[in-house]
Design a binder for these strands. Structure first.
Length: 876
RNA sequence: GCGGGAAUGCCGGAGUGGUCAAACGGGCUUGGUUUAGGUCCAAGUAGCUUAGUGCUUACGAAGGUUCGAAUCCUUCUUCCCGCACCA
């Protein structure tokens, strides 16, 4: 068998697709649009690995399928090019983020092209390009204008040696990533926020309408975290502090308060003599990361201040605690140790009194004997005028009472907080704002956008942007004073990914963020594919941005993506996470060289349902490789018989330029192949149409693994058949092409759909119809003719298989040598059994009788066992 | 800690209230083809039992709902994802 020259075939078709602009689309089409996209990647210096490839192939199969089904398919790709790793590379290796990123992008594009993906490369986006981030800045200005961008103090991780803010990822065990001896400090800085909370109700309510995985929708709901409760005013040092609680019924049981250790105004509460102690406690905070805080032991320290309970006028101590979120509610909680487990543990630890205010119905609890908080229902006690109330009813009643006294009010709280977008870093979108001593915060005028990142900056100490004086020192656009200072914070890179899907619709527009008409045509995204790790952040941010842009009047819809699909993670061999440090990164280039990229594609998709995690396996791909070779050989055999007498009139992969001469070409190409094609049997037609129907459904539902199985089975059926019609073999090639596009194009060409007209002349391709014939990927999806599906045939085939299995079973069981097989069938079924087929399968002589045949040979009366669908068997 | 998932033969996985648990692939065993190896072909691959049958065991563990559970509920174990400055 000839080796398959994958590299040559892949290159040939990738070039052809590109040259003929096969996947370039425009909104000027009669066809119905379909927008499918995968989340754009951060172009890391480590390059593309198989996990990425898997993600893109999932989208590619879907896009190709939709093209087949007659849609005008937008399938774009871009690069989320701004981000921390490029900056880390600058600090550690002295590479400028721009060159690092450009190199990485170049590498990504090259690798992605090798995967044979159906992207419209014309629409490629690079978020690090100022022509893109200009519009990030533009959106920011619009938000500022609408009051959705504002400044507020917020905690950050600070390393005093780097003299800069650290990302959570740059904090290792509370120490700086570059200075193992430096404990990270928590500092408060003025930062920019986007008021996503203005959209909180819509973000929550519209989740139900989305065709997204339920688990993701649930996660978003919990993340937004709407809860109803009561805001209660406590007085501390003659100042009002309101706290949010869902349990106002326990207000008489408050024995202390806890303010978040990261609260902006914490120090206002700390008395002079407690300052040292509190500062010492704050030093223990390892980073601002909530995950780390939650994993720390719950601890606190007394601030020296007391809060006055508005209903009892009791004074209770105020603690600073590491387990209270600064951003939720007011950053302070009232603690009721008798009825909240966390408060209970805290009270036990610091010897704070426990006061029971709810007694259960069936038994009595006492504060001395309590082993844990009582969180169940019961009657209020020690609650003055509310004694005896059912605690559930008391919730409303006490809230009402507080409201009357002007000491509180019912309130709704969300876990979702405003989006902190300020980053004290270089490789991000500059925030287009100028600070003027006279005019204050001045937005950069729209016509001065983009505010470009200056190339000349120093890395390693402080915020790089501050090292470029030309950038920082500017004239105030308002008053003209030369004393103004440019904002040196850049934006969170999630900003860039919050609207890129809109830019794909009109990627080169330099006068507007996008053309409304183009966006109206393509949007919303019909199917969005990406990892589940984005369930709560990116996938909420992009919904927020869409709603904001709608309210600006640019869009007429509020949800960016109708359908969402999460692909599973690809792990390395043996289930180990793929990473450079573990040395188990599977590189698509290498796999491609060894097995062909189509083989890798098919293997990844056949492993498991695409939404499940899977492990790469060298042995596994070998199995797929075997199948691919077999398919190749089949199509090769189709032309081999003729090669003896007639060289093929098309360039074969082994003879790139060979085989072309006018004499052979003058043999009509159809005639040339005619004798190889014939009529498909009823059996083949049945199986083919069934396969088309089921494979279509499977692809539609992202059950690619099941589709692949059916493709394999269909191929085996075709292999078994003596002849096949050209149309039916074409159907197979079409289906095969969504998974293995390069090989399929090759087969398509070979079975005579390309380049030569009836006279053997090279066909001039004009317009779309020409392209459609030239490329299998632009032909149309085979129609599933359900009238040709013969279930009876399938049933009969099963009976045959079962009979064969039974015979083999018996042969394996009995001692004696078997030379003849006798089969006794009920009279109506006798035509289902084919002596020739059966003797072939057993390699033995076979005789078949009707069980009522008087002349039959049946020494052990096995004919009696014959039932419909289950013949009697005798062996000797 | 909080929120969301997952667990099925030797392995990867199908199957989400009954018709069939293990489709399909891989591995392994036996036999055939082959100069040999690979390829390829055939049969087998929980246990007992039987001329093709029947029974038992079996879907992470333990309970529960149901006439009936891999599938629904509860608790637990292990693993994965996210937790707001990684993207």
């Amino acid at each position: 068998m000839a080796e398959i020259n994958f590299a040559e075939i892949e290159k040939k078709w990738q070039d052809a697709w590109e040259k003929e602009k096969v996947f370039e689309v425009s909104e000027k089409s009669e066809k119905e649009k379909y927008y499918v996209m995968e989340m754009f990647p951060y172009p890391s210096g480590e390059g593309l690995h198989m996990g990425h490839a898997f993600n893109y192939v999932i989208g590619d199969v879907y896009a190709r399928y939709k093209i087949f089904k007659g849609f005008n398919v937008l399938h774009p790709m871009g690069y989320d090019a701004l981000g921390l790793p490029a900056e880390n590379a600058a600090i550690e290796a002295g590479v400028h983020p721009e060159s690092y990123t450009n190199k990485a992008i170049k590498n990504y594009i090259e690798q992605q092209k090798m995967l044979g993906l159906s992207y419209d490369w014309n629409r490629m986006i690079n978020s690090a390009d100022s022509s893109y981030y200009k519009w990030d800045q533009w959106i920011f200005l619009k938000m500022l204008e609408k009051g959705l961008a504002y400044r507020k103090k917020a905690p950050v991780n600070w390393c005093r040696k780097c003299n800069t803010v650290l990302a959570n990822e740059q904090v290792h065990n509370g120490k700086c990533w570059r200075h193992e001896d430096v404990e990270v400090e928590v500092k408060h800085l003025e930062q920019w926020f986007l008021k996503i909370t203005d959209y909180v109700d819509e973000l929550l309510d519209k989740i139900d309408d989305l065709d997204w995985p339920e688990r993701t929708k649930t996660m978003q709901k919990h993340w937004i975290g709407k809860s109803y409760g009561t805001e209660i005013e406590f007085e501390i040092n003659s100042e009002k502090w309101s706290v949010f609680t869902t349990r106002p019924d326990t207000i008489y049981g408050v024995t202390f308060m806890v303010v978040s250790a990261q609260h902006e105004r914490l120090m206002e509460l700390v008395t002079e003599e407690k300052k040292e102690e509190v500062k010492k406690f704050l030093k223990k905070l390892k980073s601002v990361s909530e995950k780390e805080l939650e994993e720390m032991e719950k601890e606190g320290v007394f601030t020296g201040s007391y809060a006055v309970n508005p209903l009892t006028n009791e004074k209770v101590p105020v603690y600073a605690g590491n387990f209270v979120l600064a951003e939720y509610g007011s950053g302070m909680v009232m603690a009721v140790p008798a009825h909240d487990q966390r408060d209970f543990e805290f009270a036990k630890k610091y010897n704070i009194p426990i006061k029971i205010v709810i007694q259960p119905m069936e038994y009595e609890i006492t504060s001395e004997k309590m082993a844990r908080a009582f969180t169940g229902e019961g009657k209020l006690v020690n609650s003055e005028k509310f004694d005896g109330w059912d605690n559930k009813e008391a919730i409303d009643e006490i809230t009402k009472f507080l409201k009357e006294k002007n000491l509180g009010r019912s309130s709704v709280q969300f876990k979702l907080r405003d989006w902190l977008i300020s980053r004290q870093r270089y490789w991000g979108t500059p925030i287009p704002v100028i600070y003027c001593n006279e005019c204050g915060i001045v937005p950069v005028p729209e016509n001065e956008l983009p505010v470009e990142l200056p190339k000349n900056v120093k890395f390693g100490k402080g915020n790089p942007l501050e090292t470029n004086e030309e950038f920082v020192k500017v004239r105030c656009p308002m008053c003209g004073s030369n004393d103004a200072r440019r904002e040196t914070d850049t934006m969170d890179t999630f900003v860039n990914s919050s609207w890129y899907f809109l830019r794909y619709c009109d990627p080169k527009n330099s006068s507007a963020i996008f053309d409304k008409k183009k966006v109206k045509y393509w949007m919303p995204i019909d199917t969005y594919i990406g990892g589940k790790e984005h369930a709560t952040m990116h996938l909420i941010y992009f919904r927020f941005y869409t709603k904001f842009l709608r309210d600006l009047g640019l869009l007429d819809f509020g949800e960016p993506a109708k359908k969402l699909f999460h692909q599973g993670m690809l792990h390395g061999e043996g289930g180990i996470k793929m990473s450079k440090s573990k040395g188990n990164v599977v590189n698509p280039d290498k796999v491609s060289k060894k097995y062909g990229i189509d083989t890798a594609r098919l293997f990844l998709l056949s492993l498991a349902s695409p939404d499940r995690d899977r492990d790469w396996s060298e042995k596994g791909i070998q199995g797929t490789s075997k199948f691919i070779k077999r398919v190749w050989e089949f199509f090769e055999k189709y032309s081999k018989a003729d090669m003896v007498s007639n060289p093929p009139p098309f360039p074969s992969p082994t003879h790139p330029d060979g085989g072309m001469n006018s004499e052979t070409a003058s043999n009509s190409q159809n005639k040339w192949f005619a004798h190889q094609f014939g009529n498909s049997s009823k059996r083949l037609e049945s199986k083919l149409n069934k396969a088309i129907k089921e494979i279509s459904e499977n692809i539609e539902d992202f059950r690619y693994n099941l589709a692949v199985i059916k493709v394999r089975q269909l191929f085996f059926t075709i292999e078994e058949e003596k002849e096949i019609s050209k149309k039916d073999l074409e159907s197979f090639v079409k289906i095969f092409s969504v998974f293995c596009p390069h090989l399929a194009e090759e087969f398509w060409e070979r079975i005579g759909n390309e380049r030569f007209d009836e006279r053997g002349e090279k066909r001039e391709l004009k317009g779309e119809s020409g392209r459609e014939q030239k490329f299998v990927c632009l032909s149309s999806w085979p129609f599933a003719d359900e009238s040709k599906i013969d279930e009876e045939l399938e049933r009969v085939e099963k009976i045959m298989e079962k009979t064969i299995e039974d015979v083999n079973h018996i042969i394996g069981m009995i001692e004696k040598e078997v030379s003849k097989v006798y089969i006794y069938v009920v009279p109506g079924e006798i035509e289902n059994f084919d002596v020739g087929v059966l003797s072939d399968r057993f390699g033995k002589q076979v005789e078949i009788f009707a069980n009522n045949d008087k002349g039959k040979y049946d020494p052990e009366a096995k004919a009696r066992k014959a039932k419909p669908g289950k013949p009697g068997i005798y062996l000797e």
